[in-house]
């Protein structure tokens, strides 16, 4: 399956089968849920951002295909230690990667975000773009949705 091997390299299959941080964060500070109406997938993203404005914990939950799951899993790993502004930049970079915009992706890339390249195969499959970016867009929504602290 030469073509789809690009889409499903070992690291993607591994994240898909054994997703990291697939759970809820009980004391999360930020939360959002969204779905992909074309396939019924849904994903929830919860974040715990501390007073110093750093993401200390990131998790996702829901029902999704291997691509969406792997992308979400990878994302939660990359988010920890980032500020919301850095998280948004990370999304910009991921979006460029998924869209096949290599120049924009590489611009200012660090070693950590280079891990995202395992998902670069998606650019050849425009219909899967939504799968790959589902968790990321949910993360952006979560950043705007701070839970009231009582």
């Amino acid at each position: 399956m030469s073509d789809s091997v690009e889409l499903y390299p070992k690291a993607v299959l591994d994240h898909g089968r054994h997703p990291r941080n697939r759970r809820a964060i009980a004391d999360c500070s930020h939360f959002a849920r969204s779905d992909n109406p074309s396939c019924g997938d849904d994903v929830a993203v919860s974040l715990r951002i501390d007073r110093g404005n750093v993401i200390r914990d990131a998790a996702f939950d829901g029902r999704s295909c291997v691509l969406a799951t792997a992308s979400a899993s990878l994302m939660t790993e990359l988010l920890v230690g980032k500020t919301p502004a850095q998280a948004k930049m990370l999304f910009q970079r991921f979006h460029a990667l998924a869209a096949g915009d290599t120049e924009k992706f590489k611009d200012g890339m660090d070693v950590e975000s280079a891990r995202m390249t395992v998902l670069s195969g998606v650019h050849a499959y425009p219909v899967r773009m939504r799968c790959a970016t589902l968790a990321w867009k949910t993360m952006l929504a979560a950043l705007e949705n701070e839970r009231s602290q009582q």
């Binding site: 399956m1 396939c39 997938d41 295909c65 291997v66 691509l67």
Partner: peptide, 12 residues
């Protein structure tokens, strides 16, 4: 296995 992943592999 998610249906989308199946369909994608079948396409290949």
């Amino acid at each position: 296995v998610h249906p989308h992943d199946i369909a994608q592999m079948l396409d290949s």
